[in-house]
Structure formats: C-alpha cells, structure tokens
Design a binder for these strands. Structure first.
Lengths: 108, 108
DNA sequence: TCCGGATATAAGTAATACCTTATATTAGGA
DNA sequence: TCCTAATATAAGGTATTACTTATATCCGGA
C-alpha cells in the first residue's frame, strides 16, 4: 500500500498525529478515535493494522497491551516527493542554507 | 476533496511531476500519461479536472489548447502537516537553523 | 486454572473511485 | 461557414475501501 493511500484516510492521519506526540497503547488510541469519529474499536484496530503493515507504525508488547509508535520512514518518503515542489513556495536559498534546510548536513 | 485524496492517485502524482518541470497543454500531458499508464484521453482529462477543482493546478487558455500549471498551495498544506513528524528524521537544529530550514527567515 | 480486559480478525455490506465508450464543446483554418 | 483538432463531459460498470457485528486470541490476576 502506497504511503499516500495510507495518509488518505483522516482517521489514520489523526492516529499518526496522536502517535507523534507520544507512544500510545491501542486502547488509548481507540478511546480518542471512537470519541472523535464515532467508529468502533474494531475499525480503529483495522486502521492500526494498516499503519503497521505499511510501515507507518511499530508495535511493542507490554503485557496484554500493544504500544504503538510512529515509524517515520514512509513519511520521510512523502517529504522527499514534495522536494520538487518546494521551489514554488520557498524563497531561494543559498547552497549552505539548502543543505541545512534539507537536514543533510553532517553534524559533529 | 482533501489534498491527500488527490495525491493518492499515481496518475495525478505523475501529472503533477510533469507540471513541476514546466507548464504543459492538456494534450501533452495526455500523451505522456496514455503511454505510461495505458489509459484514455478521457481518463486523463478527468484527472486534470480533479487537479483543477482541488486547487493543485491552474489552467490558461491558448487558442484551442489548455495550458496547465502547478498551483502549489495544497502541496504546501501537505508540507505543513508533515512538520510535526520532521523531528523524527531531522537532526536537532538550533533556533536559527530551524528558521532557515522552515524558510521563514525574513530576507533582505 | 479459570476469568476478564485488551486487542485482533472474520465476514458481510454500502459507498466511492477510476476506468471505459460515446458524445458535446470550442477554436482556428480552408 | 464547415471541418478538424483539442479538450471536456456524460453515463455506466467494477473493484476497492471503510465500516459494521460477531468472534477469536492472548495475557495477568484471583
């Protein structure tokens, strides 16, 4: 499933926002999403599965709970795809600034 | 139609890539897409309509031809949404670097 | 070892997205 | 004015997606 297919769904975007703040158990995510979107626990679990299988989230087990965390790799792919359009809104940058802006600079 | 709904389709993404290089007449876009994706002119025209109506492209008329160009506003929205995830892959930046990286610095 | 809480999966359904073919619209040249 | 090229729209079929309810799995504590 392509990154944009995953991000297309507003529920999945909201879950990623939640996970970007801090890691959450599946039940915590479900509680928020059920309230905000009026969907069931099963539906949230299916969205978590999509996020897992598409590489947007990782899970670790904590007793009976599953703790979800963001895996940013596919988001970084999206960011890279946007690269070619940035010149439409970013002011012209000199070479050094461009390196910094892209986060490619080697740091000590 | 939300930006991610638009970007979900690979044909539309490819059209935007073409338009990012330079403006193109609808027929030029259609020629490339028909070849690369084996779909009809009608299908390409429908995708161009989606791009127009969702604000990703603008059109100007040149005789019987319609010249399409990128409008980056919705792409910038996507870029802004990604903001909260950048800390997952960007090295820590000091304040000035961060401003530069975000392109917010006032320039002379 | 049995039970309850937490989570995932299965099966089915309804809406939607994207395609096709056919046709309409519009502009410029003979 | 008529013809053709360029482009858009209409109508309809099909696959996919996101939901529902029902059930399975897994873990820790009594």
């Amino acid at each position: 499933m392509h990154a944009f297919d995953v991000l297309r769904d507003p529920v999945r975007r909201r879950i990623l926002e939640l996970l970007s703040e801090e890691d959450h158990a599946a039940g915590e995510v479900a509680a928020v999403i059920e309230r905000e979107f009026s969907i069931t626990q099963a539906a949230v679990s299916q969205h978590l599965k999509v996020l897992r299988e598409s590489g947007f989230a990782t899970v670790r087990i904590d007793g009976a709970r599953r703790i979800y965390a963001v895996d940013a790799d596919p988001l970084q792919d999206v960011d890279a795809w946007l690269e070619r359009f940035r010149r439409f809104w970013e002011p012209k940058l000199d070479a050094l600034e461009t390196e910094i802006a892209r986060g490619r600079r080697k740091r000590p």
